[in-house]
Amino acid sequence: MTARGWFLFSLMGVIWGIPYLMIKVAVDAVSPPVVVFARCAVGAALLLPFALRQKGLTRNVRDHWRPMLAFACLEIVGPWLTLSDAERHLSSSTAGLLIAGVPIAGVVAARLFGDTEWLSMRRVTGLGVGLAGVAVLTVPHLTGGDARSLAEVLVTVLGYATAPLIAARRMKDVPTLHLITPCLALTALLYAPAAAATWPSALPSGHVLAALVGLGVLCTAVAFVGFLELIKEIGPTRASVITYVNPAVAVAAGAAFLGESLTPAIGLAFALILAGSVLATAAGTRPRKAPVTGAAPQPSQADGWVESA
């Protein structure tokens, strides 16, 4: 990987590991709708000029509005609210680790949506190991308000795992900015009434304002542009490995800035989820079918066939 590739990879590993910290800071002073509205409004405003510079924005929205709407609901409208609300009761470390189960949920979602991709024993084992990690992390919280928060994070995980399937199948030719910018603008518009109704009567502290701005600028606008450049530099498969870096950043940030404890259970859960995600999304070669006796050898698609992660 080039020096630019390593820089972008490191940047994205950090940028998408700190939203949990910023959300935790923000929801202590403002409502979840305000958090979602501020993040989307700032992100859309920053990305819109760049999206307009790429010709065809209006045409892409007109031709793909249905899958765009589905993507927006599953990737942003629902998950960003449920995640923000969940962090009112869960630590940022716990939220970050649970979101690390997205690659595992993605494998399951792909199968449910008719993906015929072969699952090796290694990937099946990864699913089991990852789910064990989620269990270690969630069992102590299955009471009171924590149970609701865990359900909200589960909704977030399912949305994050399903939305990319829609983008890959229905909008693979739509430029990233043409997809993300309208989705952010739509979400901001939808949450504007709820944000106005719950807007704080007094100006939040500097830390809260910095968290809201950071979510919009760094974790939304810069993050999407950076991820796009990373994909161009090293390809989508290797770029997705940042998913395994983000939870470590989330746990470290929560411990360093919020004083969240690093318990043995958190360490065990992190190891299991990380190992399970790597195994469940790892590329593997499909077994070759034995040639029919007496038939002339035929070229097989299995030759050189490698599963996509």
Rank of each mutant, 00 (worst) to 15 (best):
S120E: 12
T125M: 11
A135M: 13
L112A: 07
A132F: 14
A135H: 04
G114P: 05
V102A: 14
V129D: 01
E117N: 01
L131R: 03
V129N: 00
T125Q: 01
F113I: 06
H89P: 01
L97H: 05
V134H: 05
H89R: 08
L119G: 10
A135W: 09
G128M: 07
E117Q: 12
S91R: 00
G128H: 05
R88A: 10
L90N: 00
G133Y: 08
F113P: 05
A86S: 07
L97M: 14
G106F: 03
L90I: 11
S91H: 03
V108F: 06
A86Y: 09
G128C: 05
G114H: 01
E117W: 02
T116N: 07
A109I: 10
A135D: 01
L98C: 08
V108P: 07
A105W: 09
L127T: 05
S120W: 14
S91M: 04
A100D: 02
I99V: 15
R88S: 09
V108A: 14
G128Y: 02
V124M: 15
A135T: 12
I99H: 01
G106L: 07
V129E: 01
S120D: 11
T94V: 13
V134T: 12
G133V: 11
R123W: 03
A105Q: 07
R88F: 03
A105P: 08
A105C: 08
R122T: 15
S91Y: 00
T125D: 00
L97D: 05
M121R: 15
D115T: 03
